[in-house]
Design a binder for these strands. Sequence first.
DNA 1: GTCAGTGCTTGCATTTTGCAAGTACAAACT
DNA 2: AGTTTGTACTTGCAAAATGCAAGCACTGAC
Lengths: 138, 138
Amino acid sequence: MKKRTFTVCPIVYALDIWGDPWSLVILRDVLIHNKRYYREFLASRENISTNILSARLLSLVEAGLLVKIEGETNRAQTMYRPTQKALDLLPVVFAIMHWGLKYNPNTDMGIPIMQELRTNEKGLAQRLLQNFDDITSE
Amino acid sequence: MKKRTFTVCPIVYALDIWGDPWSLVILRDVLIHNKRYYREFLASRENISTNILSARLLSLVEAGLLVKIEGETNRAQTMYRPTQKALDLLPVVFAIMHWGLKYNPNTDMGIPIMQELRTNEKGLAQRLLQNFDDITSE
DNA sequence: GTCAGTGCTTGCATTTTGCAAGTACAAACT
DNA sequence: AGTTTGTACTTGCAAAATGCAAGCACTGAC
C-alpha cells in the first residue's frame, strides 16, 4: 500500500504507520519486554535482519512512535524508547495477544506475561507502563 | 516476513495471518460495514487493485477467517462472510480505531460508527454482531 | 444479439523483503 | 601498542509482494 498522508479512516492511518509485518514485533519488544537496544531487537526469536530492523526503527522514529537517544561517545549506548503515541498502542497489542492466545495452538504459555494477560490485564498494563514513568509524566 | 507455521508468540501468529497492509482493510469492511461482495470491497476508498483483492480473499479463506459462498448460477452472487475467528477480531479492530481516532487528525467523524465507538462501544459491538447471527448461533 | 456488469486472471514495472557480507568505531584483552 | 570482540549500522543483490492496466468468461438486461 502506498502511504497516504491523508486518509479519513483511523484503521488505514494506523496500518500506514505500523501495518507492515515487522513494526509491531519491534513495538511488542519495546512495550512488553522493555527492550531498548538494537542488539536486543536483533536477538528476538523472529530473526529480523539488520537492514530491515534499521529501516523499521527509522520509520517508527519518523512516525513519532519511538525516540532515538544517542550515546555521548559510544554507539552501543544508543537507545530507542517509546513515545506516548506508542504507549497508547498497548491496548491494541493486548487485543491482538488475546486473539492470538485463543487461536494459536503453539503459543508458549511460559512467556511470563501470557498467564497474567488473562487473569489480570489491568495490573499487567499498569506494571508495564511503570517502565516508562519518565515518558508519561512529561 | 516469511510465514512461520510455528510461532510461539500470539502476536506473530496474528501478523502472519492478517499483518499485511490489506487484509485488515477487508476485514474492516466485512465486520464494520457488513460488506460481502467482491464489488463492494473494490469500491472502498482505498482503491485496492483486483489482483491483490482476490489474493487476500483467498488467503483469508485459507486462514479460516472468511468463508466463500458461491452462487448457484451467477458469480455475482458469490459472497465472503466471516467465521467466528474473524468475529473475534472485532476487539482488535476497535482498539486500532480508538488509537487512530486519537492520532489521525483527518479522521472523518461523519463515518457512522465513529461517534458511537466512543460513546457506546458495547452497544455498537452487539449491533454489528447481529449481522452475523447465523454464524454465531452455529 | 449486443452490451454493460461482475469476478476474476495475466503481464509487467516498481517496491519491499531476505540474506550475506562488509564497514566504522569503541572498549577489552594480550 | 596491536589485535580481537562487540555493536550499529550500510551495501549488494536475488526473490517476493505490490500497483496498474488490460484481458477474459460468464450472466442478465436491453
